[in-house]
């Protein structure tokens, strides 16, 4: 496990300008996450958890402060560079799985691979990752709507891993699953972390947060304790 920070926030603020007035979602947050860490971000709803995750996921940029992902300041990046970072540096797992309904499970996993490599997967990597997640080749031919929640989330993890990202971001990964399936998904995430993957997970469930080695609490957009 190396000790270089893979995510670094330096007094990062995010302010949303709404008609009813400005809303401060993140208030001067400074934070450093090193490679190989498993971090749970907790806090009540509206505390800025998702905003933080979207910033780290390079879906959005800070209003002020510096945010470095894998050494790059995302506040100074153009949209196409941010998109490229989402493609090959970050793997994103969502609460609602967010698979592409038009594609089969296999194609959902292959999609980011093709976007990155501009060719189909001929090495069998997609099949291997799906098998690692317990999705066999028959199941892989089904559309997301034909799969159970647990199966969909496993396909989503496979998709997040296909381009060998540096960071795995999970937004309430078990939120739409029953306890048993949720536990199974958490075991997969723990195993990935053990193999060296940096995992940052947003959750409001203390049991799920218990899988992480470090917990960050956010209250009203500020860091409570780290």
């Amino acid at each position: 496990m190396s000790n270089s920070p893979v995510v670094e926030l330096d007094t990062v603020s995010k302010v949303y300008h709404l008609r009813s007035g400005d809303v401060v979602a993140l208030d001067r947050v400074s934070l450093s996450i090193e490679a190989g860490e498993f971090v749970a971000v907790m806090g009540p709803s509206g505390s800025g958890k998702s905003t933080l995750l979207n910033q780290v996921g390079s879906m959005d940029i800070p209003t002020s402060g510096d945010l470095y992902i894998a050494g790059k300041n995302i506040g100074k990046m153009a949209d196409c560079d941010l998109t490229k970072m989402r493609l090959d540096t970050i793997g994103y797992i969502f609460q609602k799985f967010n698979l592409i309904p038009l594609l089969t499970a296999f194609e959902n996993v292959e999609y980011p691979y093709i976007l990155k490599n501009r060719k189909r997967d001929e090495s069998g990597r997609v099949r291997n990752i799906l098998e690692m997640m317990g999705i066999d080749s028959d199941l892989a031919l089904h559309r997301p709507s034909e799969l159970s929640g647990g199966q969909q989330q496993r396909v989503a993890i496979a998709r997040a891993l296909i381009n060998e990202p540096k960071i795995l971001l999970c937004d309430e990964p078990t939120g739409n699953l029953d306890t048993r399936t949720g536990r199974h998904i958490m075991e997969i995430l723990t195993r990935l972390n053990r193999e060296g993957m940096t995992v940052i997970m947003v959750t409001h469930d203390p049991v799920i947060a218990g899988y992480a080695r470090r917990t960050i609490n956010l209250v009203d957009g500020r860091l409570a304790c780290s």
Binding site: G57, M59, C80, T83, K84, R86, L87, D88, Y92, F94, N98, L99, I100, Y111, P112, L115, K116, R159, N163
Partner: peptide
């Protein structure tokens, strides 16, 4: 979804 997983 497409944009979040890296579609330009």
């Amino acid at each position: 979804i497409l944009r979040s997983i890296g579609t330009q």
